[in-house]
Nucleic acid binder design. Structure first.
Lengths: 158, 158
DNA sequence: TTCTAAATGAAAAACTTTTTCAATACGGAA
DNA sequence: TTCCGTATTGAAAAAGTTTTTCATTTAGAA
């Protein structure tokens, strides 16, 4: 059990939730994940630690963790919801809106911005998720070619 | 048809998509929406402009628009996906992770940051979505009281 | 106007998420 | 340690969402 997981476990306990075998398995799997996981993916990974783990429990545990701000929902490309740990020191991603290729960005200085937000809204900021959308080099090329071909046809037709 | 919608329509045309009545209805509804809409909500609103509009067409149109970077997926609290126009000049939101209350933030200066990202990754940045998660004042209080009550019980039990 | 490919709606299929309920297991008290 | 009460669990079913299929319609170019 690593430090990350101890913290998560402590937070659950601090709010009166029991620390069960299925939940430990889920925490462990989340702590080890390098990317947001859908509930189904999370179940698969957590079953390494608790082979009996049911999908319903994954949903219920994620719900609790989201309420406590331990986990954050993220949009996944394949049509279902993903969850990632809301730990500090995370990285951000740029996602290509056409082919869904992902590039990681290191270094993110939103600290000052977030302090302003906290001061202005009265919220305690527990985390943030910055999704940057764009077009990767390949898709830029593909889209341009598409548009170009169309234009050529238009001219040829005149 | 407002300017926003003209731009969207032009973008679809530029990539060889037909501009049909159902699609115009969808664009119109999106352009008028002040918040991210789920496909079902979008259908309801777009039916004002095309009473026959089918939900399948909403999904298909959103898929095209997402590929072209005209629309961005957003996580909604009620378990389905939301879509918002990827227009510049948008605002950001802080969402309470416990009660899902939303506060809007005006002023967001990520411009410089995004330029760095573009330069480093080779991506054309078409937009970004910053989700800030936190606890609203009410939920901070509620959670603290919960934890406090628990502690009291613990002490009383000693 | 005519033509053709793209786009459409309806129905069905496939998935995801939530609810229900009897059985189980955590963690406090003895 | 063992016992007890209640939170938690898995399985099944229900509800909701997204995707696929297919015959029909329609936009837009000739």
């Amino acid at each position: 059990m690593n430090a990350n997981m101890e913290t998560l476990a402590a937070q659950l306990r601090a709010h009166g939730h029991k620390l069960t075998r299925p939940r430990r398995a889920i925490l462990q799997a989340l702590a080890e994940a390098a990317k947001p996981l859908s509930p189904a993916e999370l179940q698969t990974r957590a079953r390494v630690f608790d082979a009996e783990l049911g999908l319903v429990t994954v949903y219920r545990t994620l719900e609790i963790m989201e309420e406590l701000g331990l986990v954050r929902p993220v949009h996944l490309a394949d049509g279902c919801h993903g969850y990632a740990l809301a730990t500090p020191g995370h990285t951000h991603h740029v996602v290509c809106q056409r082919c869904h290729a992902v590039v990681e960005i290191v270094g993110c200085d939103l600290g000052v911005f977030l302090e302003h937000v906290a001061a202005r809204t009265g919220y305690t900021i527990t985390g943030h998720w910055l999704e940057i959308a764009g077009l990767c080099a390949d898709c830029q090329r593909a889209l341009q070619e598409e548009a170009y071909t169309r234009e050529e046809n238009d001219h040829a037709a005149e």
